[in-house]
Design a protein around this nucleic acid. Structure first.
Lengths: 230, 230
DNA sequence: GCCAGCTGTTGAACATGTTCAAAAGATCGA
DNA sequence: TCGATCTTTTGAACATGTTCAACAGCTGGC
C-alpha cells in the first residue's frame, strides 16, 4: 500500500502510482462538488477517472478517506491564505477575523457537501474526526495558524492564557464551522455575521482579564482545560 | 404509515401495529447495546424481533430513525430524572450539575454506540440533527429543562440574559455530549470532571455580570445571539 | 355475507461501499 | 534474458441499508 503524506499531495507526481492517486482524488473532488458526496458513487469516481473500483480503494481505503484528502488540501490552501493576511495586519481582531473569513472563502466551493465530512466529527472511532490521534498533524497545523494570529498581534495577555489561546481559537473555529455547515443564507451572510460580531467580543473579553475578578475565573478555566487535556 | 408520536412511545400499546412497533424498537435498542450500532444489521433486528425486514421499515423508515426513537426515549427518561433533582435543590450550581450528571447516568448504557447518533449532528439535511426543524419538539423539551434549572434557582441576573440562558445551557450540554462521546475514561471520570469544574465557572461568570465592563460584553453577546437566531 | 379500502406484512430485488484472490506490470540482481 | 519479488490493477463477489410490488388481514358499510 502506498504511503499517504501531506507532501505527496502538494508535490507534483513523481513515483509511478502518484499520478493515478491524484487523478482519482481530483476526479472525486470534482464529482463531490458537482453532485454532492452522497450522490457520487465510488463506481462513478472510478469510471470517470478511467480506473477500476478496486484501484480507487488501493489508494484510498474508503470513500471517507477521499474526504480526508480534501480536508488536508483545504487546510494547506487556508494556511497559504492566512500567511498573506497575517503579513499585513497587526491588530488582533483584524488578524483573527481575516483568518476566519479566509477559511470561509477557501471552503466556499465545498459548502454543499462539507456537512458530510464534519458529520464524522462526533464519531470517536473514526480516524477522520478532528479530535482523533490520526488527524493530529492536520489539527496541529491548524492550531499553529492561530498561534501566529496571537503571537504577531498587539494583544497583551497573561502568559498562561496566551499559551492556551491558540487551541481555544481553534475550538472556536470548530464551532463556527458547525454553524457554517448549517448556514444556507445568501453568500453565507449569517456565518459572516457570526464572525464579525463574535471576534470583537472575544477581543473585549480577553482584555477584561485585567479585572481581578475576571482574571480569577479565566485562570481557573485555563486550569480546567489543562487538567482535561490530561 | 402509522403516526409517530412521543406519546405512543410511553403509552402502552393500544392499536394493532403498536405492539409490533415497540417490539422492533426494543429489539433494536437491545442489539445496539449488545453489539453496537454498526454491527447490528436491519436483517438481524428483523429476525430477532420475528418480523420481516420490510416490516421494520414500515415502522421506522431508516436505521437512523431507530436511533431517533432511542434519543426521544432517553430524553423522556432524563426529564423524569431532572424533575426529581430540581425538586430538592435551590442552588444554581447544584441544580445545573445535577441535571447534567443525571443525563450522564441515563445515557450511560448507550455510551458505546451513542457516537453514531451524534455524528448526524453536523449533517444539516438530516432530520435527526439536534438543530433541525424536525427535532424542534425534542429540542424545546430539552431547553425547557434548563429553563426550570434557571427559574427555580437563586440566580440573580439581568432579564435579557436570563431569557437566553436556557438555550445557552442547552448548547453547553451539546458541547458536553460531544466531549462525552469521545470520553473513554473509567466510569466517565473525565466528563464528570468537565461538568463539576465547568459549572462553578459558569456560575461565577454569570455573577460577574454585575461588573459594568463585563455586563457590556454579555449584553452584546446576547444581542448577537438574538440577531443570529433571526 | 361480502365487497372496498385501509392497515400490516412479506421477501426478493436493488444500490452501493468494500473486499479479495488473481493477474498484469515494473524492477532488479544474477 | 530470466526469474523473483514488489507494485499496481482488475472485476467479480459480498454485506447491508433500502425499496417496492404483491399479498394478507382486518374493518365498516351495505
Amino acid at each position: 500500500m502506498p504511503v499517504t503524506t501531506l507532501a505527496a499531495m502538494t508535490d507534483s507526481a513523481t513515483a509511478k502510482g502518484e499520478q493515478t492517486r491524484e487523478l482519482i482524488l481530483s476526479t472525486a473532488l470534482r464529482l463531490f462538488r458537482e453532485q454532492g458526496y452522497g450522490k457520487t458513487t465510488m463506481r462513478a469516481i472510478a469510471a470517470e477517472a478511467g480506473v477500476s473500483v478496486g484501484n480507487a480503494y488501493y489508494y484510498y481505503s474508503s470513500k471517507e478517506h477521499l474526504m480526508q484528502a480534501y480536508y488536508d488540501h483545504l487546510q494547506v490552501q487556508h494556511r497559504e491564505a492566512a500567511v498573506e493576511i497575517l503579513a499585513g495586519e497587526k491588530a488582533f481582531t483584524k488578524r483573527l477575523t481575516g483568518v476566519l473569513v479566509s477559511w470561509l472563502e477557501v471552503s466556499a466551493p465545498y459548502h454543499e457537501f462539507a456537512g458530510t465530512f464534519f458529520k464524522t466529527a462526533a464519531e470517536p472511532k473514526s480516524p477522520l474526526s478532528p479530535f482523533s490521534e490520526q488527524s493530529r498533524p492536520a489539527r496541529e497545523a491548524s492550531v499553529e495558524v492561530f498561534r501566529q494570529v496571537v503571537e504577531g498581534s498587539d494583544l497583551k495577555l497573561p502568559a498562561e492564557l496566551r499559551a492556551e489561546l491558540p487551541e481555544l481559537l481553534w475550538l472556536m473555529q470548530m464551532g463556527i464551522v458547525l454553524f457554517w455547515v448549517h448556514d444556507d443564507s445568501k453568500d453565507l451572510k449569517r456565518t459572516r455575521l457570526l464572525i464579525t460580531s463574535t471576534v470583537p467580543l472575544v477581543d473585549r473579553l480577553l482584555r477584561l482579564t485585567r479585572i481581578p475578578g475576571v482574571r480569577g475565573v479565566v485562570n481557573d478555566l485555563v486550569g480546567v482545560i489543562r487538567a482535561l487535556k490530561s
